[in-house]
């Protein structure tokens, strides 16, 4: 391994690390300087735009404009001719197993289980860890999977789910436990579509489980920061007033943590809708584990079906509308309280 590049390119690194923040600071200080030279009246009208402009420009360039292009493309065929809803019809044909329906079904499973498990584990661990002196150690250990790239995460879970036929020594951790502790036949976790509770295929839950394992550190860290953000005096005052601990949780802690739970929950719902990495690397959508993002990727880069891919993307965007409405109401509620 050759680390000499670290010496020769070090000046570049320093320039970049110092230069970038310098440019950013110069922008906002310069902008504010210009605003102050404006007449008193127009300052409040101009100032907000100085603060939001760079973010809006980048977001427009990288997300809004390409997304609008995609919506247009979903109504066009390969030659850019307008064909109405044909792309959507092709994707939504053959209910319940054809077209994009399996992917839609699986996204629904991801939405329910991924969000629920991650929030529940995160909240449970945050409350438990808050009460032990070695909190930072256990928190770091739970967070560790967050530091692993999805490529590595899939390698790890392929070892967890590895399958050997019954009678042979098992190489997968889960099948070893199943075999030794519960005396059951090993299962092919990633391929086994046996529905649990008559509804949820095992392999879907296996993929979701791997993703949950990787992301719980995310909800733990944010929820635990919110827990710590609750001022001690507030709890103290409630205690002095004679409130029991359960009342304190219901009336003080829970309402104060609610905005954070909503932020984390919304983010997780969106992660669930966008789920891609684990499915792509683990099964590539085979064994009926496909999800919308993976389907879109396949249509785009394998079939070069731009119209179909765009239609799937638009379906994905439509599923987000309920989340948007929920956010709108939360946002308005917070505004009203001010």
């Amino acid at each position: 391994m050759d680390f000499s590049v670290l010496l020769t390119d070090l000046p570049t690194l320093v320039v970049v690390i110092i230069g970038v923040p310098l440019v950013l600071a110069a922008y906002i200080v310069g902008g504010e300087y210009l605003v102050r030279r404006l007449p008193d009246k127009s300052r409040p009208a101009v100032r907000p735009w100085i603060w939001v402009a760079p973010a809006l420009v980048l977001v427009t360039g990288f997300l809004v404009a390409p997304a609008i292009g995609t919506v247009f493309q979903s109504f066009q065929d390969k030659n850019g001719v307008f064909i109405g809803f044909q792309n959507f019809a092709a994707q939504l044909a053959g209910f319940p197993t054809g077209g994009a329906w399996i992917a839609i079904r699986n996204n629904l499973f991801w939405l329910i289980f991924y969000t629920l498990f991650v929030l529940a584990f995160g909240l449970l661990l945050a409350v438990l860890f808050d009460r032990v002196p070695y909190e930072s150690v256990v928190k770091s250990l739970i967070f560790m999977p967050m530091a692993i790239s999805s490529v590595a995460l899939v390698v790890i879970w392929k070892f967890m789910y590895a399958y050997q036929p019954p009678g042979q020594p098992q190489t997968g951790t889960l099948n070893f436990i199943l075999n030794t502790v519960f005396h059951q036949d090993p299962r092919t976790w990633i391929q086994d579509e046996t529905p649990l509770l008559g509804l949820f295929p095992l392999n879907d839950l296996a993929l979701i489980g791997a993703a949950v394992w990787g992301i719980v550190g995310f909800s733990l860290v944010i929820l635990s920061a919110a827990l710590k953000g609750i001022p001690g005096d507030l709890l103290e005052a409630a205690r002095v007033d004679g409130a029991g601990e359960i009342t304190i949780f219901r009336r003080v802690i829970f309402p104060l943590m609610m905005p954070t739970v909503v932020v984390v929950g919304t983010t997780l719902v969106i992660f669930a809708l966008k789920a891609f990495d684990v499915v792509y690397a683990m099964t590539n959508g085979n064994y009926n584990t496909d999800v919308l993002a993976n389907r879109m990727y396949q249509l785009l880069y394998n079939s070069h079906d731009f119209g179909g891919a765009s239609a799937v993307a638009v379906i994905l965007l439509l599923t987000v509308i309920p989340v948007l409405i929920f956010n709108l109401r939360q946002f308005r509620a917070v505004e009203a309280r001010r």
């Binding site: 990288f62 390409p66 997304a67 919304t266 966008k274 993002a293 965007l317 987000v320 956010n327």
Partner: peptide, 11 residues
Amino acid sequence: VGLLAVPLQLT
């Protein structure tokens, strides 16, 4: 907030 849901592959 809506843009959070735009899949990157799209862009």
